[in-house]
């Protein structure tokens, strides 16, 4: 019995060693952060949400972009819980700062950088990612190529700052050197105890790609400053297909 536990422990240690060699942060710091993702944690390498890495979000239209920014802000809220400042770099920003409060972020702890040329987003993000004093860096832009994303990843590996790269309406979905690729789509909210009106926001969170993890699809509801896992039938896809046919 003791031999088995010893072997398990050894395997666990080896696995952590490999992960840390690959650039994942497996230190105590990341263990303590609970992103409230529940069952989804199993999909991540080592069962921990990878901080100190670049996460890519990609949204094809305006409504998905709002949903992705919403989900991203929830993750950001957890990263900033200990206090700290986050940098939000964007070209053509639409974010309304007071709304961040609904997602668990103090809006005055976010510094917005609004650049005039799209290329500058990457420069600012790289500079920011090298700065260990920041909690996280978010960048919103349209297109980024593989080489540029690799520079960001290298910056992150040194400073252990978490970066979010949000691609809005990208021209093509090329591969990037990011640890994870997410796709967030809004889901119809369910009526609140049969009351009329709009319910709590719901998202379909699709982990399209995760290095050393298992991709999958999850559904979450943001309620009372917490993420709740919800089950919704696949009626969504049927509906969207119908819609496309109708107005194509």
């Amino acid at each position: 019995m003791e031999a088995i536990t010893g072997k398990n422990e050894m395997i666990r240690q080896l696995r952590e060693k490999i992960l840390s060699m690959e650039g994942f942060n497996v230190g105590d710091d990341s263990r303590r952060l609970d992103f409230g993702l529940g069952a989804m944690n199993a999909a991540f390498p080592g069962g921990i949400f990878p901080v100190g890495a670049i996460h890519e979000f990609s949204s094809p239209d305006e409504t998905c972009a709002a949903a992705a920014n919403g989900f991203l802000s929830v993750l950001l809220g957890t990263l900033m819980k200990k206090g700290g400042i986050c940098l939000w770099v964007s070209f053509n920003r639409k974010l309304f700062p007071p709304a961040l409060k609904f997602l668990g972020i103090e809006p005055h702890r976010v510094i917005f950088i609004d650049v005039r040329r799209p290329k500058e987003v990457l420069w600012v993000m790289e500079q920011a990612l090298k700065n260990k004093a920041l909690s996280a860096v978010v960048a919103e832009l349209r297109d980024v190529n593989f080489a540029e994303s690799r520079r960001l990843q290298l910056a992150v590996e040194d400073s252990k700052v978490t970066g979010f790269l949000h691609r809005r309406q990208p021209r093509m979905e090329n591969a990037l050197a990011c640890v994870a690729r997410w796709k967030i789509t809004p889901l119809p909210s369910s009526a609140n105890d049969g009351l009329p009106g709009v319910g709590f926001p719901r998202w379909q969170v699709e982990l399209v790609k995760i290095r050393n993890g298992r991709p999958g699809i999850w559904q979450f509801e943001w309620k009372n400053e917490k993420l709740y896992s919800v089950q919704q039938s696949t009626a969504l896809s049927a509906k969207s297909v119908k819609k496309q046919r109708k107005y194509a």
């Binding site: 700062p97 809006p107 005055h108 500079q127 920011a128």
Partner: peptide, 24 residues
């Protein structure tokens, strides 16, 4: 100081009008 210096760098490259911070 580290953050202020970072912002100086950014302001030097992309212009000081790019940096925003909001209060209610």
């Amino acid at each position: 100081t580290a953050i202020a210096e970072l912002l100086d760098n950014i302001a030097g490259k992309v212009g000081a009008q790019a940096v925003h911070r909001y209060l209610p």
